[in-house]
Amino acid sequence: MKAPDFDYARPSSLQEALALLAAGEGGAQPLAGGQSLMPMLNFRISTPEMLVDLSGLPELRGLEQTPQGLRIGAMTRYCELEAFPDLAKIQPLVAAALPHIAHDAIRNRGTIGGSVALADPAAEMPAILLALGAVISLDGPNGPRDVAADDYFLGYYETACEPDELITSILLPKIEPGDSFGFHELVQRHGDYAMAGVAIRSSGIAPLAGLRIGFFGVADRALRVTALEDALNGTDGTDIAGALSHLSEIDFQGDTKITAETRAHYAGVALKRALKEMLT
């Protein structure tokens, strides 16, 4: 047996799942697609007393276009999002980024809600939510609440979602005419976690306007640097040397692969390449 022993529950309603999490007092761990959690369990990095399997909750399913935008049930798998009709028109940034998220066999199991709940700093989806100004809907003992992506990612695997809360769905706001998007990540092998990456939304292209740039794989969480966005707004995006100086606001992390200095350099490279692609 690779994973530590745990109790297993498969509730059939959201209410039942929330009751199990509350009763677990922090020892109960939700199981979504398992594509990050299971390797952690197999390495015994994570040792929950109970796994609460969310696959039987109808409330967390569904993928629909609403007047506000694309509402993604938390248990939507990446493969389901990829197969959504006209995704490239409805949410071009998501469509462009999806092929970079792990690979097919992982996307067949991994869920959008699971990625956002875990908030791995090198994962793509949190940065995409920042760029799009997404809204994360939570439910818990104190009732449902919505949290803007800007207020959601707090630190290393730390989010605004309390241990007794669950993400129910995520709203990607409708894109506007004239919106432009960019995505670029630097990886050792396609499908790996990024050494640095960016997801960009701009409401204009010449000049850039209303920029939202989500960085990932750079620090303890996906994040925006508003001073950098402000420096680029109103420009044509070709001379970004000055704006790049604001990257110094990021507390770049080094790891076994690369140093913090290299990562800082890569973040600039990813931004330059993504902008170049947007402008051509």
Binding site: G34, Q35, M38, A105, I106, N108, R109
Partner: peptide
């Protein structure tokens, strides 16, 4: 669908 059997529990 292709999945990795090491990253899925039997009960799933």
């Amino acid at each position: 669908a292709a999945v990795k059997a090491c990253t899925m529990f039997a009960f799933e």
